[in-house]
């Protein structure tokens, strides 16, 4: 795609992007089995047992899931030995998002260094925040307000893992545009989504939403992805969207991984209001999650 030529209409670009998303399914590292599982889960009466069996069929598939759920980032209290066990404890959607992310990010590692670390840490942080709000206290036992709604910690992990997956699509389908976007973002100190709109007419949050929907993930995952840079536009899953926005912000502020912006912006006001954030709230999170930075190398 070349923007120097006559400008493309939004519809054309969307069409191109959606078909490139569909093509992603055929990328070798994304197991074929995934589309089978997606189909299966699209049926209203899918059974956990069948999906567990499908997932167990592929060894790399199941080892990837087990490695993730047994990692310090997932922080599951007991060791999970089998896919069937994992699926009962965590649900098929969570496992599916882990497989999609680990597969896609394998391709991504050369294209955008640091995005995997950014995504994994964002997932971890989002899960921690959700759990903290759910328990009404942080790990040290400090009371937290429960008024700010409740988000499912495992779903938040999935949303965090996948929130920037739209960048992967751009990097694969529009390599030159992606490079251009990265360079401009660095020089102009403008939000990445603005530049993506200038060049592609669509941004990674919207792409990620389309992708997550295409893979039949639930709305509690794809809606927060859609609004993770526009919390004010979310009408459903506001708490989830705010948690995702905060996790993304904090991961960048802590300098963990790289997602295309060196400079951080002011914390999102809607996020602050929805989660009732003060500095103590931030301190509780940062103190708990930052030390896990040392563990990132286990996925190399």
């Amino acid at each position: 795609m070349n923007i120097q030529n006559k400008p493309k209409r939004r519809g054309d670009i969307l069409y191109e992007l959606v078909s490139s998303i569909k093509r992603i399914k055929d990328i070798p590292t994304l197991p074929k089995i995934l589309s089978k599982i997606s189909e299966e889960m699209g049926n209203d009466d899918y059974s956990i047992k069948d999906i567990g069996e499908l997932m167990s069929l592929d060894i790399s598939f199941s080892s990837r899931i087990l490695r993730m759920v047994n990692s310090p980032f997932y922080g599951f209290p007991q060791r999970i030995y089998s896919i069937k066990h994992a699926i009962v404890l965590l649900g098929a959607n969570v496992l599916k998002s882990i497989v999609i992310s680990t597969s896609v990010f394998t391709i991504m590692k050369e294209a955008m260094e640091g995005l995997w670390e950014h995504s994994l840490f964002c997932a971890f942080t989002a899960k921690y925040i959700a759990a903290m709000l759910l328990n009404g206290s942080d790990k040290k036992g400090n009371k937290m307000s429960k008024e700010n709604g409740i988000a499912d910690a495992d779903m938040m992990f999935s949303a965090g893992l996948m929130h920037d997956i739209g960048k992967v699509i751009t990097a694969i389908a529009f390599r030159d545009d992606f490079k251009k976007i990265m360079i401009i973002a660095e020089e102009d100190k403008r939000p990445l989504t603005d530049i993506e709109h200038d060049i592609l007419n669509i941004s990674h949050d919207q792409l990620g939403y389309m992708l997550a929907k295409e893979w039949n993930l639930p709305s509690s995952i794809y809606l927060p992805i859609k609004y993770h840079h526009n919390v004010n536009l979310a009408s459903e899953f506001k708490t989830e969207t705010a948690i995702l926005n905060l996790s993304d912000f904090l991961t960048r502020a802590m300098g963990i991984g790289y997602s295309g912006n060196t400079y951080i912006e002011k914390i999102n006001t809607d996020t602050v209001n929805i989660l009732n954030i003060d500095l103590n709230f931030i301190k509780n999170i940062v103190e708990e999650v930052y030390p896990f930075k040392n563990e990132l190398s286990i996925f190399d």
Binding site: A253, G255, Y263, I264, E265, K266, I267, K283, E287
Partner: peptide, 27 residues
Amino acid sequence: AKRFEDIDGDGFMRGIKEIIKSAILKN
């Protein structure tokens, strides 16, 4: 410091920066 360069005038953001600074040192 570089990451927070543009928003150093904001009190709340300075607070966040200090929290992260302590976390780095503690690490």
